[in-house]
């Protein structure tokens, strides 16, 4: 490792080489780190999906069904005229999370919700007739007593916001597709 005349003549060049070596090694180490963490992203066989077709056939007025996609639960509920009226009446109340019923449904008869309480994630009851629906006739979360109206809006209890409405569309009068837009 003899000292060459160039090394002595250009002390600044030396530092440049040393620094670029360290920078280059750093870039390599950082890329390796990114690549390692990338292996934790969803794998190719689970990425995508999450779409389900739900037949509306046979759902009685005042009742509904729960559709499951993977681990997610959705409520598809057919509202009675009285329930729709109650929901629309609720528009003028002072709500914690202000939304009108018209913003939350595509067709007044059908209420489609993601069954996940915004408080801490429990699935609220009330989809099928006969389940506990709380003081407002909509949905009731058994974990911490959040009560939702017939539009799925929070009216009483700890939930900070309304039950979320998923992406969905009516493929026909008898069929909706949950998980994507038309």
């Amino acid at each position: 490792m003899a000292e060459t005349p160039t090394d002595v003549a250009n002390p600044d060049r030396r530092n440049f080489i040393v620094l670029s070596t360290m920078a280059m090694a750093g870039i390599g180490a950082a890329s390796a780190g990114v690549a390692l963490v990338r292996t934790m992203t969803p794998t190719r066989d689970v990425a995508g999906g999450g779409v389900i077709e739900v037949s509306l056939d046979g759902i009685a007025e005042g009742s509904g069904i729960v559709a499951t996609v993977g681990r997610k639960k959705y409520s598809v509920r057919r509202r009675t005229a009285a329930e729709i009226e109650a929901a629309v009446a609720g528009d003028s109340e002072k709500l914690r999370h202000q939304e009108t019923d018209a913003e939350r449904v595509q067709r007044p008869e059908w209420l489609v919700l993601r069954l996940q309480c915004p408080h801490l994630g429990c699935p609220p009851q009330g989809t099928a007739a006969g389940e506990k629906r709380g003081d407002f006739g909509g949905f009731f979360c058994p974990c911490h007593n959040s009560q939702f109206d017939t539009s799925g809006r929070i009216r009483k209890g700890p939930s900070p916001s309304n039950l979320p409405v998923p992406k969905y569309f009516f493929a026909s009068d008898e069929m909706i597709v949950i998980g994507k837009e038309a």
């Binding site: 490792m1 000292e3 060459t4 090394d7 002595v8 030396r14 080489i17 040393v18 670029s20 070596t21 280059m24 090694a25 390599g28």
Partner: peptide, 23 residues
């Protein structure tokens, strides 16, 4: 290609450092 570049660069850096250390 990256590793070869790093190999060449680190060899030069090693020589630079070696010259300083020996001095």
């Amino acid at each position: 290609l990256y590793m070869l570049a790093l190999t060449v660069l680190s060899f030069l850096a090693y020589r630079v450092v070696a010259a300083k250390v020996h001095a």
